[in-house]
């Protein structure tokens, strides 16, 4: 199993805390933010490679999920985002996918399903990263003239 690194962003504190414990138990490195602003701050502080996937609630006071997504994708394009939504905001989640989110999940969700999507998103991110590394290596070898 790949050791994923996840940032959960939701204003429901008890939800975040329990989800963190459960994911940690499954070997996921988890961090939490309780608003869009806090999430962006944490991502900037830790750097893009530290976090693989962001689980992002759509409805939050202050900066909402869609706005946070847009800024994450601008500032940290490699990070994959899974939108988390209640039924009434499915449209927003779909809108999020159009704007670059990896997938969306409906609340309340089964942890197995979340893990599945989390792993897939992590794989995608790692793949993306390795392709970039490979391209960078090719670039270096080209410069050396090998």
């Amino acid at each position: 199993m790949i050791e994923a690194s996840v940032l959960i962003v939701d204003d429901e504190v008890p939800f975040v805390e329990t989800l963190m414990k459960r994911l940690a138990k499954r070997g996921v490195r988890v961090d939490a933010a309780y608003s869009g602003h806090e999430a962006l701050e944490k991502l900037t502080a830790s750097g893009p490679t530290k976090t693989d996937v962001v689980i992002l609630d759509v409805k939050m006071p202050g900066m909402d999920g869609l706005e946070a997504l847009a800024r994450m994708k601008t500032e940290h394009p490699l990070i994959e985002v899974i939108m988390l939504t209640g039924h009434a905001t499915v449209e927003s989640a779909i809108e999020g996918m159009k704007r670059g989110a990896y997938d969306y999940l409906m609340k309340p969700c089964e942890l197995d399903l979340l893990m599945e999507k989390l792993n897939a998103a992590t794989d995608k991110k790692r793949e993306h990263e390795s392709k970039i590394l490979e391209a960078r290596a090719n670039l270096i070898s080209l410069r050396r003239g090998d």
Partner: peptide, 23 residues
């Protein structure tokens, strides 16, 4: 519709807590 959405949040927490107990 608004209230059903509002209920989703506590239900999600309950589901997580139940899952945590199972864990």
């Amino acid at each position: 519709a608004g209230i059903a959405h509002e209920i989703n949040n506590p239900v999600a927490i309950m589901v997580q807590e139940a899952g945590w107990i199972e864990d």
